[in-house]
């Protein structure tokens, strides 16, 4: 169970997240849509303190953090309860595909090398990249890098997986394979919060879609309702634009 209350983030005088409340049930797959610059990525980044929110309470499973007074331990606990898939993949450039996945398991979770390696190979198998285990990121295509990035996030076994526009930086030819992998993650009822511009994908896998504008959640609901009969005028305009 994820519970967010009053989450607020400002950059200088601009309020990027304005008092956000959000509950996500276990196994729920939530997609965030909205015009650019409305705080979608910031919402994800605040949930694991890549950006530090000014106020609000974040509860993920047994971890509960008051943003205003979060210390180093709170932040680490929150980050360990989440995993993050980046738009630009952000694989560790000095680690092979396999080592990228092992890193969190060994360094953060304290598992043995052998155990971590077995788990990494298992995950690489699921991402269809077992033959690339010993390749460095520089030698992988964008699509392959992002699949390793998702594998790295899967292996952690976090309560909540965060996807920040995972296909936006990809050449069109690689988008399909990454969405396929995300579909498979979704099928396991992994709790996911996804920012994406892939509307048909959102319609297909989301249990609920959030529409954000101006740092607020303007409207939310199951894809069928929200996409076919949008109530808010801003959402109507947005949907017309993205087709």
């Amino acid at each position: 169970m994820i519970r967010v209350r009053g989450l607020t983030k400002r950059f200088g005088t601009t309020t990027v997240l304005d008092d956000i409340d959000l509950d996500i049930a276990d196994g729920e797959r939530v997609v965030v849509i909205g015009p650019s610059g409305t705080g979608k990525s910031t919402l994800l980044r605040c949930l694991n303190f890549l950006d530090r929110p000014e106020a609000g309470r974040i509860e993920i499973g047994s971890v509960s953090v008051d943003a205003a007074r979060a210390g180093r331990r709170d932040i680490l606990a929150l980050r360990r309860a989440t995993s993050f898939v980046f738009q630009n993949y952000a694989l560790f450039a000095n680690r092979t595909a396999k080592e990228n996945i092992m890193e969190a398991l060994v360094t953060v979770q304290g598992r043995s090398k052998a155990e971590a390696e077995a788990r990494a190979m298992e995950v690489l198998g699921e991402t269809g990249l077992a033959d690339k285990a010993d390749s460095y990121p520089a030698a992988l295509s964008g699509g392959q890098q992002q699949r390793v990035g998702i594998g790295r996030a899967m292996a952690i076994g976090a309560e909540l997986m965060l996807f920040d526009e995972p296909t936006s930086a990809l050449d069109p030819e690689w988008v399909g394979e990454v969405l396929d992998l995300m579909r498979r993650v979704a099928e396991r009822r992994q709790t996911m919060l996804i920012v994406t511009h892939e509307m048909s994908f959102a319609r297909e896998i989301a249990d609920r879609i959030l529409f954000m504008d101006g740092g607020r959640i303007v409207e939310q609901g199951p894809p069928a309702d929200l996409l076919s009969s949008p109530r808010d005028e801003r959402l109507q305009r947005f949907l017309r634009r993205v087709g």
């Binding site: 694991n48 303190f49 890549l50 680490l76 980050r79 360990r80 989440t82 995993s83 993050f84 980046f86 630009n88 952000a90 694989l91 560790f92 450039a93 890193e103 969190a104 360094t107 953060v108 790295r152 952690i156």
Partner: peptide, 16 residues
């Protein structure tokens, strides 16, 4: 910068 963020996102300490 993305290398720092990736390390932070998996819950590494600053030293790690």
């Amino acid at each position: 910068r993305s290398q720092w963020e990736a390390a932070q996102s998996i819950g590494m300490t600053q030293g790690q």
